[in-house]
């Protein structure tokens, strides 16, 4: 098919426009996953290891937010960053930073919910030993996060997968501006609607390859780490 041949040509010649879009997509999604991990992992561990009024409803809410529609997350961040919004003075709307914020909002609940479950399960296993060793609460949390690190990689991958795959949030807060806020998913949506299938197909292939490569890398690291730690 001519479209496929053109897509292959774009990939093999490493088209600058394609390269720029791929780079921005990776930058936004990896940054969002990093920030979401910095928020979600400690929050999930805290919820797993503490007991307080309202904990159960909070867990239900967190689990529900795993299915937060990207367009809703985008709309919330848009309202916050718009000129009349509470963070309007930051001037971030229609920038890559706004896209990172929107994806962080989307991904943090996923990482927090999966971390909560992972840490709680490991705590059930470790509770007697750590209690008998008189380990202080903060050290307990650090131990559990460290020992659950290979399981938490899965939580990070789930978050990264969500970030790379979504269109709704970043198109609202980023605006899909050519050369500035255009990512693989927004470009695929746009080029498909314009009938420019070669670029859309090329981007689709690159997106799949990137997701596969990062998952393979994380899986390999996890297996190697598990073999060493037991």
């Amino acid at each position: 098919m001519p479209e496929n041949a053109s897509a292959l040509h774009l990939l093999l010649t490493s088209d600058p426009a394609l390269r720029e879009i791929v780079w921005l997509s990776l930058f936004v999604s990896l940054s969002a996953t990093l920030f979401a991990a910095l928020i979600g992992v400690p929050a999930g561990a805290l919820i797993a290891l503490t007991r307080f009024r309202g904990r159960e409803p909070l867990i239900v809410l967190l689990n529900a937010l795993m299915g937060l529609p990207p367009v809703v997350a985008g709309l919330v961040v848009f309202l916050a960053l718009s000129r009349s919004g509470p963070l309007g003075s930051w001037g971030l709307l229609f920038t890559p930073q706004a896209m990172i914020i929107a994806q962080t909002v989307l991904v943090a609940p996923i990482i927090a919910a999966l971390t909560r479950q992972t840490i709680e399960d490991l705590w059930m296993e470790y509770r007697d030993e750590l209690t008998a060793m008189n380990v202080a609460p903060v050290r307990r949390a650090i131990t559990l996060i460290a020992d659950a690190q290979f399981s938490l990689v899965t939580a990070l991958l789930a978050g990264f997968g969500r970030a790379t795959a979504e269109v709704g949030a970043i198109i609202i807060v980023g605006g899909n501006i050519d050369g500035f806020t255009r990512t693989m998913t927004t470009a695929i949506a746009l080029e498909t609607s314009k009938g420019e299938l070669p670029l859309a197909i090329g981007l689709g292939i690159v997106l799949m390859l990137v997701v596969f490569a990062i998952n393979a890398l994380a899986w390999g690291a996890r297996r190697a780490g598990e073999r060493l730690a037991g």
Partner: peptide, 25 residues
């Protein structure tokens, strides 16, 4: 200290497990 009937090994090496107990003490 207590040795449980079915002790749980922490996800680390033999030396790492003993080191953890020493550090916590």
């Amino acid at each position: 200290a207590i040795l449980f009937q079915r002790p749980v090994m922490l996800r680390r090496s033999v030396a790492g497990n003993i080191d953890y107990a020493l550090a916590s003490a």
